[in-house]
Amino acid sequence: MFEARTRRAKVVLQIVITLLVLPFLFPLIAMVQGSLAGAGWQNYLTVLSVPELPLFFRNSAVVALGTIVIVYALTMLAAFGFSKLHIRGKEVYFWMLLAALTLPEVVLLTPLFSTTTTLNLYNTYWAVILPLAALQVPFTILLARNFMNGIPDELFDAARVDGAGTVKGFWYIILPLTRPIAAAIIVLTLIGAWNDYLLPLVFLVDPTTQTITLLPQFFVGQFSNDQTKVLASAVITAIPEIAAYLCLQRLFERGLSAGALK
């Protein structure tokens, strides 16, 4: 965007961006540094040797995967409906969904207390997956619908003229073309589900169903708070997310660039 023709200008640009990024890097360094304080790498070994760790990872993976599958399926179906199909009062439904964007998790807590217990969902993954998905879906539908609006109707119509049904059109045309936005949806949903603290804390009470976000709790007692190990578990918890982002980075950016949020 900015043109830097001379060598000096290039160096200046590089320095400017480095200086600007430093404040963003600083807390990350403090985090890693803190996790190595006291016992050093031993902190990581202690965290990794928590016997429940693999279980917690699995549970978080179950919750994240479950949420991603539900969000992806519902988002694609609905975004397709909103973008390409005939629905009377489309805007009304869409607005109803968007209004749900404004709802913070805290507000859901009390109603969910009673709902999950009456539906017998308390202490099951569903008590976390369903609310998480419900809160995520409005935003992802918004993204996916805008993305699908960018796919020419003619492409879809042509397929229909060739005798392919709506379902086939959806399956063979829409789904492959929407891969970039799917990557964005997956990354965003993964972040939301993997990082969620409140819902698993309250609704997954059995030690065998608890998620990775509760890992730091192992090092926080009533009277003690081992910051070094809390930070080490934080770093360990964040690694899968960073890996997922790195893997999907290109698709993620392409998804967002195709007018997803304009």
Binding site: F113, T116, T117, Y122, N123, F203, Q222
Partner: peptide
């Protein structure tokens, strides 16, 4: 006996639905 220690800050939010449930 299985003892589960809940962080002080979250005890109230955790125990309330638990006591309301059957588990």
């Amino acid at each position: 006996v299985t003892y589960k220690q809940v962080a002080t800050a979250s005890y109230d939010s955790v125990i309330r639905p638990a006591l309301a449930s059957s588990v």
